[in-house]
Amino acid sequence: MIESAPDRLTRMLSMVAYLRDNPAVPVAEVAEHFRISPEQVIADVNTLWVSGTPGYMHGDLIDFSGDDLEHGVITLLDSRDMDRPLRLSPGEAVALLVALQSLSLAFDHGEDASLVDETIAVLRAAAGDAAKAADAVEVAAPRRDVDARAERIRAALSTGRRLHLRYVSASDQTTERDVDPLQLLTDATRWFLVAWCHRAQGVRQFRVDRILDVQVLDVAADPHPDVQLTGRPEPDTAQAAQVRLELSSRARWFAEQLPGATITELDDGWLELTIGVVDLAWLDNVVMALGAEVRAIEPPEVARRVSSRAQAGLDAYAELGLI
């Protein structure tokens, strides 16, 4: 990914302020601090080194110790007065403060929540007027119906233990499995456990509200250094089936909450929704919930699948004499 110019500019200016306070820092330490590669640190220093006031002669430029750099250490010699730390813009203050408020709610009054609240107070004081805009934003707490399960998962994550799950999938299959927890993720609405599943021999994502029971095992979780966490609550849509739905305008709310969906307005006021679906059982559920708000599904085999599931529901009512 190519870094944006505002991102790099912000970092280079922040780096000058940081280097003023931290003389003779090893390149690796700067890289670690700003979460960039050592090569990028050198590239930034080299850019700063040739930057300065018009004229751009020696004495106009930001200067570093060449000797130190040869030894892998960065020492700022002349900052050209560019060593003031930058204040937060209103947009930056709002984005961080609202994220912190969401975190505070997600942690729900625990020890972490008070640390978050403390951080909010420090940040607000530093942001000044820029923080006031954040007052206009309210965030909702994730659902609370999963607390005991989420707590056990968090305990296993911090102590590095394996978990035993009893889980019901979107297709209503109940399974038992041992998993090594990797991450507990929330999208501010639901919680998800990302884990290495010993039964599937791969990384799987579990919705916490579908975990029927979870036990922390007296077994250490295996390390999984090769696993790259996507950090996304949505499943990987690369292997998804493309499904096209025609929805009534009343179902717009549903279409709008789907990440990666394409919504087209049809001439008669209906909507066309195109979406990549990884788990067709999920699609069955939402289509049955929408009922008459859906008037067409493509491809036909997907339409037949969901239709037969609805028919199975009707048959079950008939069996019990409820229709």
């Binding site: 289509v287 049955m288 919930a289 929408l290 009922g291 008459a292 859906v294 008037r295 067409a296 599904i297 036909p300 339409a303 037949r304 699948r305 969901v306 239709s307 037969s308 599931r309 609805a310 028919q311 529901g313 009707l314």
Partner: peptide, 11 residues
């Protein structure tokens, strides 16, 4: 809801 969806696949 179930009747509407059952009708979608021609069932």
């Amino acid at each position: 809801r179930l009747r509407a969806v059952a009708a979608l696949g021609g069932a």
